[in-house]
């Protein structure tokens, strides 16, 4: 499993709104049915606990896709 596949797997496991969605590296997460404030909070919490990086909701919203979000995570590590 690639690093990106592993990241997407983590997102799907930890964010209920993404559980049954098809997520690719370039998928806009906010387009997933059920994406809401709880999903955004869960994304922030998952990234903080798994990667030790604190992202804001604004950063996640602006990055939008798993690959862009992961780029920010890498740049902050």
């Amino acid at each position: 499993m690639t690093i990106m596949e592993n990241f997407i797997k983590g997102l799907k496991e930890n964010i209920d709104a993404l559980e049954n969605a098809e997520i690719r590296p370039d998928t806009n997460l906010a387009s997933a049915a059920g994406w809401d404030s709880l999903a955004a909070l869960s994304a922030m919490a998952f990234i903080a606990s798994e990667y030790g990086v604190n992202l804001t909701a604004r950063e996640i919203s602006a990055a939008a896709t798993p690959e862009k979000i992961f780029e920010i995570i890498q740049s902050k590590k």
Binding site: S37, A39, A40, L41, T56, A57, R58, S61, A62
Partner: peptide, 8 residues
């Protein structure tokens, strides 16, 4: 929270 650009 006010500066978060949170969806809510």
């Amino acid at each position: 929270f006010l500066e978060s650009d949170s969806p809510e």
